[in-house]
């Protein structure tokens, strides 16, 4: 009987964590009795958790190589800029620790970075009208019934013949040039305040760029930074779900039917798409 039971468990791939979950110990169950208490804190478990963490860290590190940016210098400027947009503080990690630069690198290497699903045919009008469109400050979360769910950054009309990936390269190199011209320093060596001044010049469209407006580059940079902080960890940002942890965002779930009427805030364990797909 006992053997049968364990066979069955093994077939189902029932992990120890799953066992704990099923017995209600992880999912808010009250831990009672010395045996179970001991089970939770014993040496074996500590060792196992440390091992898992180490492996996870190694796995993530292997993915943290540049896929799109060939020059390290460009990538370092990107890192420094994203950290100013979403800095480390007493609430939690900033963009660099969250893996945002790697997230952006991967995005720019994807179909999105190469504008594969966008209309990229001539003629691209480069005139005053186009300039106005680029400067239109339309908050994305206020442009329709289904779009309260968009990242709240401005979305000027895209009328550049450059792809997003090309805009990033041009924008980061321009930031470097502005920093050197203005402060006689590399962007990465400039003080946080000086870095902010450079970013603001781009944000306000004060920098001349070729084939694209500096505000378009800035909006892309800001949008992708926020996305890198909060998207599912599968994309390389939101490392170890630390972005979600700060925000108390639980991750994808099969159901919130039990929570929807709750008067108080319900804080949950974090779950990523990887966890969700195990059961889907």
């Amino acid at each position: 009987m006992t053997d049968q039971h364990s066979d069955k468990d093994e077939k189902k791939g029932l992990s120890r964590r799953q066992f704990l979950k099923n017995t209600g110990m992880v999912a808010g169950g009250v831990v009672g009795g010395s045996l179970l208490g001991g089970l939770l804190t014993n040496e074996y478990q500590k060792k196992q958790e440390a091992q898992i963490k180490e492996e996870a860290a190694k796995g993530a590190a292997l993915q943290e190589a540049r896929m799109f940016f060939s020059r390290k210098e460009d990538f370092d400027i990107l890192g420094a800029a994203t950290e100013r947009l979403f800095p480390q503080d007493d609430i939690g990690p900033g963009a660099i620790e969250l893996g945002v630069p790697y997230f952006i690198d991967k995005q720019l290497a994807s179909y999105w970075g190469t504008n594969a699903k966008e209309y990229m045919r001539d003629p691209f009008r480069q005139n005053s009208e186009e300039h106005d469109y680029q400067h239109k400050d339309s908050q994305k979360d206020k442009t329709g019934p289904n779009t309260d769910s968009q990242t709240p950054v401005p979305t000027p009309r895209y009328q550049s013949r450059l792809t997003r990936a090309e805009i990033f390269i041009a924008g980061l190199r321009k930031m470097e040039q502005v920093s050197r011209d203005k402060f006689k320093k590399k962007f990465v060596d400039a003080s946080p305040d000086q870095q902010d001044q450079v970013l603001k010049m781009f944000e306000n469209g004060k920098v001349e760029m070729q084939g694209v407006d500096s505000v378009t580059f800035f909006n892309l940079l800001l949008k992708t930074t926020i996305e890198g902080v909060y998207s599912d960890p599968l994309y390389g940002g939101n490392k170890n779900m630390q972005g979600w942890k700060m925000k108390e965002y639980p991750g994808p779930r099969a159901s919130f039917a039990d929570v929807i009427e709750a008067e108080d805030f319900v804080k949950m364990d974090l779950q990523s798409l990887k966890d969700y797909q195990k059961f889907a």
Partner: peptide, 25 residues
């Protein structure tokens, strides 16, 4: 109440900067 995703839920009171320490907080 659509249910806010983590990327979407970045609404801040008017006058808050769009990025940086105050935005994050």
């Amino acid at each position: 109440q659509y249910g806010d995703g983590a990327i979407a839920s970045n609404h801040v009171p008017a006058g808050t900067p769009a990025w940086g320490p105050e935005f994050k907080k």
